[in-house]
Amino acid sequence: MLAEQRQKFILDQLAASGALAISELVSELDVSRETVRRDLNALAARGLLILTHGGALTPERAEPDTQTRAAVNAEGKRAIGVRAAELVPDGASLILDYGTTTHTVAQALHGHHNLLVYTNDITIAMLLGRRNGNRVVVLGGELQDNEDATHGWDTIEQLSRYHADFAFIGTGGITADGQMSDFSRSAAELRSRMLLAASVACVVADHTKFGRNAGVLVKHFEKAAYLISDMAPEPELAAALKERGPVLRIA
C-alpha cells in the first residue's frame, strides 16, 4: 500500500470504531510499527486524529453510536458473550452495563432462568425481562444521546442501593499500561461503581479495545475478577494486566 492508501484505511477504521491501537493497525496493514506511527503522526498533524499512547482517537473523542460499534468484530463479541454467560448459574443476580459487548452477554443468557438483572440498558432489559421467571430492574437516569441506555448521577445513585453476584461491565478502552478508560467522566464513574457493586466483577472487552486510551480513566479496575476478551493482548499489555489483578479469560 502507498502511504495515502494506508492513511485512508486508518481514517475509515477510525470512523467506524472511534479509536485504534497501533498493534491492531500493524496486523491489519502488515507493516512495521514505525510505518504506522509515521502515518498516525502525519494524520495528527492535519488535525484528523488525536495521538494517544499506543494508538489514536477521533478528534471528537466521542464514542460511535451503537449500530456502528455493533458491526465491529461482531463474531468476537458473540464469543465473549457466550464465555461470560458460562459463569452465571440460574437464579443469580447480576449487573449488566450498556454496550454492544454486554448485549452479547445478555443474548447468551437468554435461556437462563430466575435471574435478577440490574441494567441501565433498555434493550437488555427488554431482552431478558418478562421471560423464564427473570426480574429486571432498570436503573433510571438521563437517556444517552447515542445509546438506548441511561447514565448520569441518578443512575449512579440508584446503583448504589444494590449488590449483585456478578457484574459484566464494558469499557471504552484498555490502555497500554493496563488501565480501563472511557470517553466521558459520567461513563467512567458509572463503570467504576459497577466494579464495586458485585461479588464477581467482570470486564468484557474485545481485542480492538487493547492499547486504546479513551481519555478518562476508570477507577477500581483492580477489583475486577476477570477480563474476558476474544484474543490475547500483546505480551507487554498482558504483563500490565496481570499486574493490575484481573484474570484474563479468552473466549
Rank of each mutant, 00 (worst) to 15 (best):
R78N: 01
G99H: 03
T175V: 09
E147Q: 14
G152T: 06
A92H: 10
L87C: 03
A92P: 05
N213M: 03
N146S: 11
G111M: 11
I124Y: 00
A214H: 05
N134M: 07
L128W: 08
I174G: 06
A164P: 10
D148F: 10
G141L: 03
G111Y: 06
D90T: 08
W153S: 14
N114I: 00
V203R: 00
A214P: 07
W153K: 08
C202Q: 05
D182W: 03
A167K: 05
A201T: 03
A79L: 12
F168A: 13
A92W: 08
E222W: 06
T208G: 03
G178R: 13
F166C: 05
V216S: 04
V137D: 01
W153C: 09
R131Q: 15
F221A: 06
T101S: 10
N134I: 02
Q144V: 06
I95L: 14
A197I: 01
A176C: 07
E189L: 15
A164Q: 13
A167W: 11
G141A: 10
R131G: 03
I156A: 15
V138Q: 07
A214G: 09
Q179G: 06
G215C: 12
T119K: 00
L116N: 03
D177Y: 13
D97C: 02
V137E: 04
V204Q: 06
F168I: 15
A79K: 15
E157D: 11
T155I: 03
R83K: 13
E222Y: 07
A225R: 15
G178H: 09
T155R: 00
A198G: 04
V138S: 06
R78W: 01
D206H: 06
A205Q: 09
V105C: 09
L87D: 10
A197D: 08
K219W: 01
L115H: 09
G140W: 04
L94Q: 12
G173P: 07
A205K: 12
G172H: 04
A201K: 02
H103T: 13
S160C: 01
R130H: 14
R161D: 11
S199C: 07
I122E: 02
A149D: 00
G111H: 13
G99E: 00
A225W: 03
L127K: 04
G111D: 15
T119M: 02
G152R: 03
A187R: 07
L96N: 03
A79G: 15
H220W: 04
R83Q: 15
L195E: 11
R191Q: 15
A92N: 09
G140K: 04
D145T: 12
L139P: 10
M180S: 13
D90V: 05
G129P: 02
T119N: 00
T208R: 14
T175G: 10
N132V: 04
H151I: 09
R131V: 07
H113F: 11
T123C: 09
L128N: 11
A85L: 02
R193M: 14
V216W: 09
D154A: 10
V88P: 10
R135L: 10
H112N: 10
D177H: 14
I169F: 07
H220L: 05
H103I: 08
A84Q: 02
R83C: 14
T171V: 14
P89N: 09
V88F: 10
A149I: 04
A79T: 07
A197M: 05
A106L: 05
T123Y: 04
H103R: 15
L195I: 14
H112F: 01
G91S: 09
H110T: 08
